[in-house]
């Protein structure tokens, strides 16, 4: 997956776990928590969905790397290089 596809993958996951949030306007650099309502339980869900859809294990100490969409793309790129973007579950 490219960086753009990873961003799309994370947005798809956010849409699944928080269907009422507007994700179209999310920018890459501000913390996700400042742009939409996401608490620690929701971050756990993002991590769980990444594992479910792409088999990526994110250890708890790395959750902070997922704070922004750019952070997600940078952190996940090496793990997702060989994956295709999943169709939204």
């Amino acid at each position: 997956m490219t960086h753009e596809e990873i961003v799309q993958a994370v947005k798809d996951i956010i849409h699944t776990i928080a269907p009422d949030e507007e994700i179209g306007g999310l920018n890459l650099t501000d913390p996700l928590r400042d742009q939409i309502e996401l608490d620690s339980m929701d971050f756990l869900d993002i991590v769980m969905e990444l594992r479910k859809r792409y088999g990526v294990q994110v250890p708890e100490e790395d959750y902070k790397e997922l704070a922004t969409l750019q952070g997600c793309a940078d952190y996940l790129a090496p793990h997702l290089a060989d994956h295709q973007l999943a169709t939204s579950a």
């Binding site: 699944t16 776990i17 009422d20 608490d39 339980m41 929701d42």
Partner: peptide, 18 residues
Amino acid sequence: KGTRGRPLTRILRQLRIP
């Protein structure tokens, strides 16, 4: 509906129940 960060809305989101 739509109230943020309160127990009711948090659990519904976690359970994905509209």
